[in-house]
Nucleic acid binder design. Structure first.
Lengths: 232, 232
DNA sequence: CAACGCGGGTGATTACAGTCACACAAGGTC
DNA sequence: GACCTTGTGTGACTGTAATCACCCGCGTTG
């Protein structure tokens, strides 16, 4: 059962009036995914938006010759699969669960109806589209970096929680993506990512903390590496 | 002077009622750019959408170390600079005129007002946002291709006019991007792009036709190269 | 006209990331 | 316990695209 209260925990939906949430809640469905589960299928017309409650998702495409390409990460509070909402086109890419994940699916048809009566929700979704576009632009720029270590550090930097980025010297990333998952985001091979991580570990900038945790022991140095102010 | 008729030549605006166009037209301004002209500046809050009437634009970003990164091409009938419309954020990337270009600038404030009264225009712009997102996804996947020639052929293929793609054996690309401009789209060096083009020319797949024209003499072979069904 | 900048063309060299081939540890499952 | 699978760690080798250094031709501008 999805309650209006659950929906209102999403920052994107928070601003909507209670009545809209009450209207959407009974139509929505909670779905859980195991690691590696396919959340959204490429090529088909998905009929729901997928809101992520817990875990981490990754948008993934495949090149003509079968290579995986990582497009974006989806973090809790965010959503994905929104493209068909406007153009009724098929979902262009796969969305995969990188960790066990809890999601809420809201049917597009319901959203479209609400959108007509409540222009507020349109704004919210458009802002989200804009944000995704900015995110992809940033990710694309990343690929232009000729220095591979910098590329990895930038990606790592983007995974650091916003509240830890300034001031703190340590930060914890829960269930970090695997080396392979990072590699496809950066057009690198898995081995290359591993080697960069090895390097970061020996310099005590990051540290593995069990299988499901990555400790950034020196946040500010990571930042400087990401910004190119320091070489690895 | 911008007339409502001029606005209605844009496929995106065509569907709007006459009165809306009449309202927007007097607020809009025609602007012409020389090759290399800066159409939109990165980092500043642009207050207009830029509709392209003639010519070709390119969205460009720069990496931290000053390298150019090509993000997308804008073809006639299309527009750019729409991100701030919703989130009031700054324009994330530069937009440069690759050729002499004729544009129409429509102030965001005017559009926002129209958007409130006329939900139709919101739809239209959202569809456009979706399309841009699909385009960037496709472009990102391109970068995953390990075969460099294929990458160039794919990019070239995207520049072929839609109506020439099936059936025709020849096609003409007017004012094609320079090798450098293609190179930054594909994360390649200018020289590498030149070498691929040399190769395509000796195989009589493309042909220079003066400075401002590129003739695709064998459209179907180009397609097969782009799809990886043939090696170069 | 000379001078210049830009776009394109080409060879030699080299750095460096991909690839392949392993090894190892941890967790799950029969 | 034996067995997989998955994620990571590492060395040796190699292919290939970047880089650098030139060249040319053309159009513009003084």
């Amino acid at each position: 059962m999805v309650t209006p209260e659950l929906l209102s925990t999403f920052p994107i939906l928070k601003s909507l009036p209670q009545e809209v949430l009450s209207q959407l809640a009974p139509l929505s469905a909670m779905r859980k995914f195991a690691r590696r589960g396919i959340v959204l299928n490429a090529g088909v017309r998905e009929e729901s938006l997928c809101f992520l409650f817990e875990g981490r998702l990754q948008g993934v495409d495949f090149t003509i010759d079968g290579r995986e390409v990582g497009l974006y990460f989806v973090e809790p509070g965010d959503f994905c699969g929104e493209l068909g909402l406007f153009d009724h086109g098929p979902q262009p890419e796969y969305v995969i669960a990188l960790t066990a994940a809890v999601t809420v699916f809201i049917p597009m048809e319901a959203l479209r109806e609400v959108m007509i009566k409540q222009p507020g929700i349109v704004r919210v979704i458009c802002e989200r589209l804009s944000a995704r576009l900015r995110q992809m632009t940033k990710q694309r720029s990343l690929l232009g970096l000729p220095n591979i270590s910098q590329r990895v550090c930038c990606q790592l930097w983007m995974l650091v929680p916003e509240e830890d980025k300034s001031g703190r010297t340590e930060s914890l990333i829960n269930n970090p993506p695997t080396h392979m998952e990072i590699a496809i985001m950066l057009n690198l091979s898995r081995e290359t990512v591993t080697r960069v991580f090895q390097n970061l570990q020996t310099r005590q900038i990051v540290k593995r903390d069990g299988a499901a945790c990555l400790l950034i022991s020196d946040v500010q140095t990571l930042r400087e590496l990401a910004e190119g102010k320091q070489e690895l």
